[in-house]
């Protein structure tokens, strides 16, 4: 474990906790894309298949449980909770899951480190995580306004992945044989996807104006 990875995990944890608390306290999910939240729940479900078979560390297991519980409860709140679901804007959140899930699944079938069910699922979850934010970014562009918490959510998600890139660089130089192209490339693609959002987020924060993403 290195400081970059710990900071990355904590930032990632913050992003889901901030979102869950927002939805729980103000009983609203305005501006949040349910599609993205469902994709993230799928990412964790396919990423952590080994939670009961391979014990890595207490930290690892606890964090996996927190991510699984928080992502599924966010989806539950947005779909089932009688008050929260009313603020879900399903007419705007129309990104079709399959457009992301199928290509990631196909890609994982061809590009993976070992052709086993667990490995393909793990690779699928990496590719899916890279693109899972797209429905949220599309929704932000459509609704054009962004309340601060949604901005913070996307910002923390991007920051977590950027910290992970520093972690991979650190591990590459400090651990022999630590080479994982698949992880690195999908993580880089994911961070680049956030890059343009970051640019507009910083500008709006600096000029203290509401965030306006390009049409």
């Amino acid at each position: 474990m290195n400081i970059f990875r710990l900071a990355g995990d904590m930032t990632h944890l913050m992003s889901v906790i901030v979102l869950l608390l927002k939805i729980h306290t103000i009983k609203s999910c305005a501006g949040i894309s349910l599609k993205t939240q469902e994709l993230y729940a799928l990412v964790f479900a396919t990423r952590y298949l080994d939670i009961f078979t391979d014990f890595i560390s207490l930290y690892n297991t606890i964090m996996k449980l927190i991510f699984l519980a928080s992502s599924f409860s966010i989806v539950w709140y947005m779909r089932q909770h009688k008050i929260v679901r009313r603020s879900y804007d399903k007419d705007q959140d129309t990104f079709r899951h399959l457009f992301l899930i199928l290509p990631c699944l196909l890609l994982a079938l061809f590009i993976n480190e070992k052709f086993t069910f667990k490995e393909v699922m793990w690779t699928f979850s990496l590719f899916l995580e890279a693109v899972a934010i797209l429905p949220q970014l599309v929704l932000l562009q459509r609704t054009r306004n962004i309340d601060n918490l949604t901005g913070q959510y996307v910002f923390l998600l991007g920051a977590y992945r950027a910290l992970y890139i520093l972690n991979w660089i650190y591990r590459y130089f400090t651990e022999p044989h630590y080479v994982h192209w698949i992880t690195w490339i999908s993580g880089l693609v994911q961070t680049l996807l956030y890059a343009d959002f970051f640019y507009y987020y910083f500008n709006s924060w600096k000029n203290n104006v509401k965030l306006q993403l390009p049409a």
Binding site: D50, D54, I56, N60, M63, W122, Y164, H180
Partner: peptide
């Protein structure tokens, strides 16, 4: 090492 052992990241 087999790729499994290095799945120590979240």
């Amino acid at each position: 090492p087999s790729s499994d052992q290095t799945k120590d990241e979240l």
